[in-house]
């Protein structure tokens, strides 16, 4: 199996506070990796290192090496915009732009200059919506505001928006935490379909979700990586006592 992203000795500081302690973790191509752990354990922070979304926060400092396909993503030669084209992201709360459904999906392809032709753009949008399993529900109202959709639909729109840029990796930061159980199960189903073509890294606070959708699981605690491995192994016979305590519900 090939590693698409590998990280080595990653440390993250918020001002004086250290949020991530010396983490080294690799992600395999076309697999779903779940990052689990109690809130405040640094799993989201770590996820945001992978597409350099932490650059937005002034006081945040990232150290260590993060390679994607053997290129250092924090090197000066990498344009962060180009990196984010390759690594898409879906956020905790659905955040569609207050524009039409079509424009939401077309925005990424437009700014990256995928095409100048209307019919090609239509195709990109329709494909992305189909892949996100949203097309059938919205095909008659592509001009409606993205914000007029229901929560679960909005989140799938955000997934379609990410897919439309043709990323290799999709980062998902607790994508279901703001959704109801039915919408959650639809998204979970979608994730298992998407791993055919994308590498997915998902942060979740729900252990059941991690168990249901992921191939690999990494357990974070207080900014440290406690244990990682195949999901079945982590959930059945973890090596570490803390992991065991967490998945059996003793803390978290």
């Amino acid at each position: 199996m090939v590693n698409i992203i590998s990280t080595k000795n990653v440390n993250v500081h918020y001002g004086d506070k250290q949020a991530i302690n010396n983490i080294s973790l690799d992600f395999m191509k076309n697999k779903v990796t779940a990052l689990i752990g109690p809130s405040g354990c640094g799993k989201s922070t770590f996820l945001r290192c992978l597409n350099r979304m932490n650059d937005v926060i002034e006081i945040c400092k990232v150290e260590g090496q993060i390679y994607m396909n053997d290129t250092d993503i924090y090197s000066n030669e990498i344009e962060v915009e180009h990196l984010r084209e390759k690594i898409g992201m879906v956020f905790q709360k659905p955040n569609p732009f207050p524009k039409s459904i079509f424009d939401n999906v077309a925005y990424g392809p437009r700014i990256h200059g995928f095409t100048d032709k209307k019919n090609e753009m239509d195709e990109i949008v329709v494909t992305a919506l189909k892949k996100a399993g949203l097309f059938e529900e919205v095909k008659d109202r592509l001009d409606d505001l993205g914000t007029s959709l229901s929560g679960g639909q909005q989140q799938r729109l955000c997934i379609a928006r990410a897919i439309a840029v043709k990323p290799e990796v999709i980062l998902m930061d607790e994508p279901c935490s703001a959704l109801d159980p039915i919408a959650t199960s639809i998204i979970e189903e979608l994730i298992t379909e998407l791993k055919e073509s994308y590498t997915i890294i998902i942060v979740t606070h729900s252990m059941q979700q991690a168990a249901r959708v992921s191939d690999k699981t990494a357990f974070f605690h207080l900014g440290n990586l406690i244990e990682e491995g195949d999901t079945t192994k982590i959930f059945t016979k973890p090596d570490n006592q803390k992991t065991n305590d967490y998945i059996t519900g003793r803390f978290g």
Binding site: N51, M53, V56, E81, H82, L83, R84, E85, G88, M89, F91, K93, N95, P96, F97, P98, Y107, G108, I111, H112, C158, R161, A162, V165
Partner: peptide
């Protein structure tokens, strides 16, 4: 809201 900014940035917008 910042989430709009993050959404655009995550798509690779400058």
């Amino acid at each position: 809201p910042p989430s709009i900014r993050h959404g655009a940035l995550a798509l690779g917008a400058t």
